[in-house]
Design a protein around this nucleic acid. Structure first.
Lengths: 186, 186
DNA sequence: CTGTTGTTTCTGTATAAACAGAAACAACAG
DNA sequence: CTGTTGTTTCTGTTTATACAGAAACAACAG
């Protein structure tokens, strides 16, 4: 495994790590975390912090923190290796499982607090004198939307992967099966 | 409308703007953009850049740029006002429409490029000698997952709001209607 | 108890993003 | 043509985040 920080990156694995790295950046995840995840995702055997640090050219401490974060997301797990003192890690390789875990994490860390904040706002608006009814309505719409989305989200997280897969593959065909009125694209 | 940068923020509208502002921060959107969006979302009449700048205590230039970005996301639109020289703006207030626009924007700016990068990686891996078949398989799984998700996403974006709403409200009941085998939560 | 190995927390530095204010630009009225 | 009003782009500063390296800490072997 080469030092992937170098400019010359010609093999697919390194490129994937690089891409995944700054893709993470665009999301809330920082580069180190995303790169480590990518590395473990493509690794055929568990790796320890040392190896990761060397492979990616990331400081040992940084690796340690990033691993902790990835574990908390349940995207990787500690794996005890026979006759080895130090901890090894391997990634969840089932992509559906992965996606579910990420979705779960984002829900807890971002969506739920946002919903709570919104509820607070609506509650305050309701007791507040002199608030324009139109404004109140908009806040309520927003709240309701968030609520619906959230419920849906939770339920989907509970659906087994295989069924979810099938459901998504159906795409908008579900609509015709459910015999909803109206045409596609109004 | 008070200067919402102040610490004392007791009314619901300002609080919403504040929340929305750093909620945006957690997403890819910066605070200014999100705050302006929030302000317009709750405003009962179109506002011009000047008013926004004063209300939020954000530099005129910053407001201008943020407005441009919001327009590009189609979350707000320019509204000509009778007998007024300067441009006014109003927000899309239908929350479903709003969500669709955001989803659309994120797809174009983030998901599509990510998918393209991934395809490149897989292509490279396929021509590459000495790549572990397991690794190749993982990359392909990832690619396929992304593809499925993407297609689904596109199709859902084409579904009229009312139907989407109904669909989401059904939640996991769709599964039983579709008579999928297997139980919920394996 | 002391040396060794591995992990975590802390601290300063570098990097990138957001932002204000200024300058440049455009449209128009008189 | 010139002054006025509004908009956009540019530039330097501020602020937040990521990060490396050091220090502190823990577990254990001998």
């Amino acid at each position: 495994m080469t030092e992937i920080k170098e400019i010359t990156t010609n093999n697919a694995i390194d490129q994937f790590i690089l891409y995944w790295g700054d893709m993470g950046g665009q999301w809330g995840v920082n580069r180190s975390v995303a790169q480590i995840h990518a590395l473990l995702f493509l690794s055929t055997k568990p790796l320890n912090a040392e190896q990761i640090s060397e492979t990616l050219g990331i400081a040992r401490s940084n690796v340690s923190n990033s691993l902790k974060e990835l574990v908390s997301w349940k995207l990787i797990r500690r794996v005890p290796i026979q006759g080895e003192r130090r901890e090894h890690f391997e990634a969840e390789t089932d992509v559906w499982e992965m996606a579910m875990r990420i979705a779960q994490g984002r829900k807890e860390r971002e969506i739920d607090p946002a919903a709570a904040a919104l509820n607070e706002c609506v509650a305050k608006a309701e007791t507040e004198a002199g608030i324009d009814p139109v404004v109140l309505e908009r806040l309520r719409d927003m709240q309701q939307f968030m609520d619906t989305t959230n419920r849906w989200y939770v339920q989907m997280l509970g659906v087994p992967k295989s069924q979810l897969n099938r459901l998504m593959k159906m795409g908008d065909k579900v609509l015709s099966v459910l015999k909803f009125a109206g045409k596609k694209m109004p």
